[in-house]
């Protein structure tokens, strides 16, 4: 898929299809299940029990392990698939493992903590700009650390210190994340930094 517009529209369509499926499920659900779903969709770290962690942690570790092993292929892909292939990379295989790692990490966290927006989009760009590097040898450990820190900071803000209210974590990450992504895009347009999509 070479055309980014095609990719964008495909993404939108998948989004619509998935949300239609969700609506369908909600429509046929009992009210208390719907309430549980709504709470899950706000996102929360406090709902995860130790028992759940026993499942979540190993899967996450496998996903992270695969990501670390992908350092070299990801670097080769910086110049595009043709260059990567010309340097001897098996692009199909690399793509499979990249998708595997991303799916394991994003899927597991979403299953247990709800859909937490913007950390996944914003943190890698933040790291690239902060470290002024495109080398995944640096970026992968940096993204793991900065991502964890960002999630914890967002959670701390969500707990609203000094109040009994707990905000949905998705609200916090979106409030900070959306302006950040817009800022990155504007900077990119000015040519101050350019990064690969």
């Amino acid at each position: 898929m070479k055309n980014p517009t095609t990719l964008l529209i495909m993404g939108l369509m998948f989004g619509y299809a998935a949300s239609a499926l969700t609506s369908l499920l909600i429509y046929f659900s009992r009210p208390e299940r719907i309430q549980a779903y709504t709470i899950w969709s706000y996102g929360s770290f406090s709902g995860v029990t130790w028992n759940q962690l026993r499942v979540m942690a190993p899967v996450i570790l496998v996903g992270l392990g695969v990501a670390v092993l992908l350092t070299k292929p990801l670097n080769a892909l910086l110049l595009g698939e043709d260059y990567a292939r010309s340097m001897g990379l098996n692009v199909k295989q690399a793509r499979f493992f990249i998708l595997l790692s991303a799916s394991l990490l994003a899927g597991t966290v979403t299953a247990f903590c709800g859909p937490i927006g913007f950390i996944g989009v914003a943190v890698p760009h933040l790291c690239r700009n902060l470290l002024r590097s495109a080398d995944h040898k640096v970026l992968i450990p940096a993204v793991i650390l900065v991502g964890a820190i960002a999630a914890l900071v967002a959670d701390a803000i969500a707990q609203l210190p000094g109040s009994q209210y707990v905000l949905p974590i998705n609200v916090v990450t979106s409030l900070f994340g959306a302006p950040f992504v817009i800022w990155v895009l504007i900077r990119q347009r000015r040519g101050a930094t350019s990064f690969t999509v």
Partner: peptide, 15 residues
């Protein structure tokens, strides 16, 4: 043994 320079300009930031 064989290496290439392709026609499309590469866009890579922070490198």
């Amino acid at each position: 043994l064989v290496s290439v320079v392709l026609t499309s300009p590469v866009q890579v930031g922070n490198m």
